[in-house]
């Protein structure tokens, strides 16, 4: 069992080892839906929510798989559970809060192929976290993802009005900005010690 204190886990997942800028997880939505701050923050909220749910599920699966001694089924069951979680969450949100569904709707299916979710499930089992640590880890990772997305969206909203050479426009420019953001996030290293 891992003994890391909860707040170190949170800071670690959110700032030091930011899922997007240090681990390169969830780059697709990071490049895809970081155009506007409003959509970016909603996407972040949706991802954080799914992370929390699938983190708990992955914790349960890991216990079950260790019990029956079938570690080779880990990947398959994780991906199956994440895909079904996303579906369930989608249906649930649609039923309970149509307004929220309209806000999150299109992003939810996209989350299935978001490697940040699967990455979270794999990392938490590798690190041997307990259930409380898992939840905090998921929360931190989600917060870090949202932070990176919103920062990026803010920068891109500004960049829209800037005249840049047309070869630079688009993904190339976004990647350059992401690189600079990543350098900035390196400055957070050492906070956890």
């Amino acid at each position: 069992m891992n003994q890391d204190p909860l707040w170190t886990i949170f800071i670690g997942a959110c700032l030091i080892n930011n899922f997007v800028l240090a681990y390169f997880l969830g780059i697709c939505p990071f490049l895809g839906v970081s155009g506007k701050i409003a959509t970016a923050s909603r996407m972040g909220a949706a991802v954080t929510f799914v992370m929390l749910v699938s983190s708990v599920c992955a914790f349960g699966i890991q216990i079950l798989l260790t019990q029956i001694g079938a570690p080779y089924l880990k990947l398959i069951s994780f991906i199956a559970v994440i895909a079904s979680t996303v579906q369930l969450v989608e249906m649930f949100v649609k039923k309970m809060s149509p307004a929220l569904f309209r806000a999150l709707g299109i992003f939810l299916p996209l989350i299935t192929t978001n490697c940040a979710i699967l990455g979270l499930a794999l990392f938490q089992t590798n690190k041997g976290y307990g259930i409380a640590q898992c939840l905090v880890y998921a929360l931190g990772a989600g917060a870090g993802f949202t932070l990176a997305l919103v920062l990026m969206a803010g920068l891109r909203e500004r960049l829209e009005l800037v005249r840049v050479p047309d070869v630079v426009q688009g993904t190339a420019l976004t990647l350059m900005v992401a690189g600079i953001l990543s350098v900035i996030f390196m400055g957070f290293a050492g906070l956890g010690g």
Partner: peptide, 25 residues
């Protein structure tokens, strides 16, 4: 050293995309 760090990945990919855009253009 920065090229091995995460940010180097972003910069290098950005630069390659620049090259490809320039060829396309």
């Amino acid at each position: 050293v920065i090229m091995i760090l995460p940010s180097g990945g972003f910069f290098t990919l950005g630069a390659w995309l620049l090259v490809f855009n320039a060829i396309k253009k």
